[in-house]
Write a protein that binds this DNA or RNA. Structure first.
Lengths: 245, 245
DNA sequence: AAGCCGCCTTGATCTGCATCAAGCGTTGCG
DNA sequence: CGCAACGCTTGATGCAGATCAAGGCGGCTT
């Protein structure tokens, strides 16, 4: 049974989205994509999973059998070169989907950063649902387009921004993706390690650390703890991010 | 009128795709997305345009009124930072679409590299067609997913590959995107300037030039002309591209 | 055919970030 | 409590690629 109204505590709520009681299907339905019948059916296909930090959701090259919807925690999505160099292509948080874009095999790996809860669907069943529900497809297309725009912005960052601009951009954009907000208005939660930030921004851990220290020294931010940063001067940070220095 | 059978000479043909006589609509139809009726309707909406080298198709921030299908030539798609730094996010060739992913406004600029011919649709009309034709949407979703996978690969390149690995990757992948093949089997056509290659790979023109010279010296390739390169040792180049050195 | 212009190559030098190398704080465990 | 492990910071040094600078070459104009 689906209980849309009574959201359990472990369900994340994102802007314009809700996560349903059993799984993340609701997130799609509120895009106007799923009727109640479809929703019930998708819910029936879902399987709840909890993963400890570090565990893999997918590995590059694995057959893409499942589709995932994160309901809590955070996930790193990345690709590796033969010699172990890693590029993190994105972080996922509660409400995000993984595996929508995969073909027969996953083109990326994904691992839990923190303990993660998620719902898992068989892709085959999901695909047949999609074929019958055109408005779901429209919602997915919309999602894919947003991801594509984000990817292009990240290409600008990786190809043309300085280390300081990358960090500033990262600190400004992270909160808008992560619905698990800490207390303060301008407080940024960093569930990921310095090494993961580095691999996301195309830098080294030392450079990440040095730039954060410099921004702190300049009074733009405060390192509340290793995993929490308070942005003291958002406007100045935004100017840095765009290279208006 | 549509004449699917008689393709005029200026129409590009891509693997598994054909461009229709009047416009690029055929490219979508052969994905199984469009019936003859839809095709005729889309054809009716199309407008042929020719652009000289350097002219803009879209500018970042402009309202996204049109959708484009390139029928010949090549296009650079890019984003700019405030101080003029440019990141080229992709090159488009005959058969490629531009503007599918845009929201209300374009998030990127696009300009002709060579003289370009294209077909232009009003996005509003195209959207209503899409709403009525679910299988078209499926084809578009498929396209978006491929672009997304390509964007992730480019993020690996920009974030983690050396200059030599970037150039090698570029030379290996370009021909698979550009249907305008020159004579030889391993000949790569470079319609874009060194400066465009640099802005695509996150390098400078000097580095592009130096790396090409080095690869030539090492006997991996031959610079047939400024805009044509013959790959002499594809296997070795592929090893370089993946960092297996 | 001379001269200019834009694009490319090549060389010299510089620099931002990587690499190498300590040391520090926190956590967990015997 | 001690001490080992791990992740982070900070400092010293190195280097890939950027920047600065000087031709070279082909195409276009007159």
């Amino acid at each position: 049974m689906i209980e849309i109204k009574s959201l359990p505590t472990n369900c994340a709520v994102r802007p314009n989205e809700q996560i349903c009681s059993n799984c993340g299907a609701r997130a799609l339905s509120v895009c106007g994509a799923l009727g109640d019948a479809d929703l019930a059916r998708l819910d029936g296909l879902a399987e709840r999973v909890s993963l400890p930090a570090g565990d893999a959701l997918t590995r590059e090259g694995d057959p893409a059998r499942y589709l995932y919807n994160i309901t809590s925690g955070s996930v790193r999505v990345f690709k590796l070169l033969a010699d172990g160099r890693r590029q993190i292509t994105g972080f996922l948080f509660a409400g995000d989907f993984l595996g929508l874009t995969a073909g027969e095999a996953f083109a990326f790996s994904a691992e839990a950063i923190e303990p993660v809860t998620l719902c898992r669907f068989k892709r085959a069943e999901y695909r047949s649902l999609v074929r019958e529900s055109p408005s779901l497809e429209a919602a997915l297309l919309d999602r894919a387009n947003h991801e594509l725009a984000a990817a292009h912005n990240q290409m600008v960052l990786l190809g043309r921004k300085t280390a300081q601009e990358r960090i500033a951009t990262f600190l400004l954009e992270l909160p808008s993706k992560d619905p698990a907000r800490p207390g303060g208005e301008n407080t940024v939660r960093l569930p990921m390690s310095r090494s993961e930030i580095a691999d996301y921004l195309g830098l080294t851990i030392e450079t990440v650390s040095r730039v954060l220290t410099r921004l702190k020294t300049q009074g733009l931010l405060r390192l509340a703890s290793l995993n929490e940063i308070v942005v003291l001067k958002p406007a100045a940070l935004r100017r840095l991010a765009e290279g208006d220095v």
